[in-house]
Amino acid sequence: MLEVRFHGRGGQGAVTAAEVLAVAAFGDGKYSQAFGKFGPERRGAPVQSFTRVDESPIRIRQEVYEPDIVVVLDPGLMKVVNVRQGIKEGGILIINTKDKVPGAWCVDATRIALDTIGKPIVNTAMLGAFSKASGGAVSLESIIKAIKERFPGELGEKNAEAIRKASESCSLIGV
């Protein structure tokens, strides 16, 4: 079973990202589960969301404590939250950042989102980075299909473009 934890800030769409990833994994023919760690819904406050993907029905009902993959939507969170907490040995860390963080997959998703969507909303772009960094654990095609279903029309097209660009430009920084 693949377990994913998203770190974002209230309003950035971390829960939507987890849900779209689950829908996409289902589109790939797998079982999946997604939920947020809900709190007082304060815009800008650190939030978490989770996705599980498996070949068989998912029999677990708890937060993800030992993720295989961690996705960080806001680089500022690195200073206030231990995003690496519980990450499995050999686990993958994917960060939206202009910087090069050793050992992590990095992508300037904010720039990509501004160029494609026109707003610094990076949740969808980070799913493109997820597909690349995870070696296609959830396919890019299914992610794009899921995002177009969630956001029909022009908005979906722009988000799909952000997903493709983030997938192409994210890279693993050596330690």
């Binding site: 689950a22 589960q33 997604a34 939920f35 809900f38 009902r61």
Partner: peptide
């Protein structure tokens, strides 16, 4: 609540 209402499941 939340564990089922707000969780995406198959």
């Amino acid at each position: 609540g939340f564990f089922l209402t707000h969780t995406y499941d198959v």
